[in-house]
Design a protein around this nucleic acid. Structure first.
Length: 603
DNA sequence: CCACCAGAGCTC
DNA sequence: AGCTCTGGTGGC
């Protein structure tokens, strides 16, 4: 067997062929020469002859690191599949899926042989959606107790830790809380899992790569959460990977949460009759807002009578009121007169601020600059420049509600300070108070008794790419209704230009109503979940035009908004079609040109 | 005289 | 994207 294909992690998709004298186990790491230096790679397959792709001299493997493959075959298949489905390449997926020492240090790790695959029962899917987190956890615990080996995923580490706390003592001993960050802790947990010591793993999205074997049950909580998507390269969705992993392991897959994702709603037809009680939701018209002037701004804040009376009522009962607004700073923004959508940064989705001096827009998050669009990108309506003040301007108003024992707090002040600061925040709010913050302030629901949550300008909460903006807002408002303790006695207020219309119907009637309306629209537009939507960033303008023309040749209709210049979008029925078209751009031979970056939206 | 660096060049 | 090689700079 003189040849073998080696996967060397990098932005390219193809494996590299090397000569070898010794018999190399598939999945083992090897050191290979590459370019001027050497790299660590994984043996993909062995070949008795050179398959003659030709054109270059084939070099030899320098040495074999592992005698036994680093991880079980099912996990190898998961990386392979993920690399294709997310169009990021298996190498990039490996980079985030295994402890980084395995790619940097060529020390061998002594591991036992992979166990044979268990094929006792067929993989099945179970859906259940419950708004209350603790109710869901109770069901998870029951499922986990019946299972020999399990994996439980949460969108955030905090929720995983919360679930872990609820586990009975006897279970905790046999379970590993998966570390959210790399380093020594992760390596230790990884090796324990690889040795199949724990019965179960509980963790955030990253735990989907835990090398546990013979898993029987995989639970994904809050499966529609955007937190399962990675926000940097490689762009993956851990929920989708968890689904594939369940199929590979013949494990039963449990999808759960407060709301289903669009794809699961469409495919699994999950049922729920949960909706908030009539008294829990208030919808008010922003156009009836008071013009409350704020020092140093000379501007108006949209504060309705209902907001102020509900806040007072909440404080009088000794609970905490939350004012939510996703705009930071005093700067003005530009919004659509018709639908209320704010102009968003094309790179990161943050609401852009208007710079009066230069008559242009600037992203407060990533500092990118763009010109002011002529019409609203969402509804083609008229845009107008508003000078609607943000969070900092709102705070002085909240301050006027402050009293002894009931402080007014600005959430931004506590965000960077870590866990201790958040706990001290809970202490200060023990007999109520008022907090001003962005959506991130919703975590307070877990540690503070929130009696009132007011969305100051719910139309402006729309962010990220337009087609799923409505779901993002819906699920956020939905979250504010159900997260944390005493949610049944919480009042949630939506200040809007179109109170109760559109997606807001779902807030009153439940997610079934929301998705039924939303999917009708998406079907017409051919957007996910009816297709896959890909965002591609080319490495150069020349590469972009080559990609565009190849796609058109093959019957796809790429969309090129021209801004930012290297980006374009395309929808496709299956990812594999696009994969075939763009694979040539991801060959290692193209390194000089640079590689494109692809992000796939599946729902 | 060599340690340290930024930048270039290369990749089965 | 790494990796190494290169050539310039600067510290002693």
């Amino acid at each position: 067997m003189p040849y073998c294909d080696v996967l060397v992690p990098g932005p390219w998709w193809n494996g590299l062929t090397y000569k070898t004298e010794m018999n190399v186990p598939i999945g083992a790491r090897v050191v290979v020469p590459l370019g001027r230096g050497e790299r660590i790679g994984f043996v993909q397959r062995l070949d008795s002859e050179d398959r003659g792709r030709g054109g270059f001299a084939i070099r030899s493997i320098r040495r074999i690191i592992d005698e036994i493959p680093l991880f079980p075959p099912s996990l190898w298949e998961l990386f392979d599949w993920g690399g294709r489905v997310f169009l990021c390449g298996t190498g990039e997926l490996l980079r985030i899926g295994i402890p980084s020492v395995f790619l940097s240090s060529s020390d061998a790790t002594l591991l036992p042989l992979p166990l044979p695959r268990m094929e006792t029962k067929a993989s099945e899917e179970v859906f259940f959606y419950l708004c209350d987190f603790h109710e869901r956890c109770k069901k998870f615990i029951a499922l986990v107790e019946r299972s020999e080996r399990f994996l439980v995923l949460f969108p955030e580490q905090g929720l995983a830790a919360e679930f872990w706390k609820l586990l009975p003592e006897s279970q905790k001993k046999e379970t590993v809380l998966w570390p959210s960050q790399g380093g020594k802790k992760l390596l230790a947990a990884w090796i324990r899992a690889r040795n199949n010591v724990p019965r179960g793993i509980i963790g955030g999205p990253g735990a989907v790569f835990a090398p546990l074997q013979q898993i029987e049950t995989i639970i994904v909580d809050e499966e529609s959460s955007g937190a399962y998507r990675s926000y940097k390269k490689p762009f993956i969705n851990a929920r989708t990977l968890a689904g594939k992993r369940a199929r590979l392991e013949s494990a039963s897959l449990v999808l759960s949460g407060r709301t289903p994702s669009s794809r699961i709603f469409l495919r699994g037809k999950p049922r729920s009759t949960e909706r908030p009680a009539r008294d829990n939701v208030r919808l008010v018209d922003l156009r009836e807002a008071f013009a409350s002037s704020v020092q140093g701004v000379g501007d108006s804040l949209p504060l309705t009578h209902t907001l102020l009376t509900e806040t007072k009522r909440c404080l009088a009962s000794g609970r905490t009121a939350l004012w939510l607004l996703d705009r930071k700073g005093y700067a003005g923004e530009i919004a659509c007169e018709d639908c209320g959508n704010a102009a968003r940064c094309p790179k990161c989705g943050t609401a852009m601020v208007w710079e009066e001096k230069h008559d242009r827009l600037r992203c407060p998050a990533c500092a990118s600059i763009r010109s002011i669009p002529q019409v609203c990108p969402v509804c083609r309506g008229h845009l107008l420049i508003g000078k609607r003040p943000g969070l900092e301007a709102l705070f002085p108003v909240a301050k006027s509600f402050e009293s002894d024992g009931q402080p007014a707090l600005f959430m931004e002040d506590f965000k960077t300070a870590g866990k201790g600061a958040v706990r001290s925040l809970a202490d200060r709010l023990s007999s109520g108070g008022i907090v001003v913050g962005t959506r991130a302030a919703l975590v307070l629901c877990d540690i503070v008794d929130i009696g009132f949550a007011g969305w100051i300008d719910v139309d402006a909460e729309v962010r990220s790419i337009a087609y799923q903006a409505k779901f993002t807002v819906f699920s956020m408002v939905w979250e504010s209704l159900w997260r944390g303790k005493n949610h049944s006695e919480r009042v949630v207020l939506l200040q809007s230009r179109r109170p109760g219309a559109g997606w807001q119907k779902g807030v009153v009637q439940g997610w079934k109503t929301f998705w039924t309306h939303e999917l009708k629209e998406r079907k017409e537009l051919g957007l996910p979940p009816y297709s896959y939507l890909l965002e591609i960033q080319a490495a150069s303008l020349q590469q972009k035009s080559e990609m565009l023309s190849r796609m058109e040749e093959r019957g796809l209709f790429p969309m090129d908004p021209g801004d930012p210049p290297l980006h374009f979008w395309v929808t496709a029925r299956s990812v594999s079609v696009v994969q075939d078209i763009i694979a040539p751009f991801f060959s290692i031979g193209c390194s000089k040109n640079g590689f494109p970056e692809v992000s796939v939206w599946i729902d």
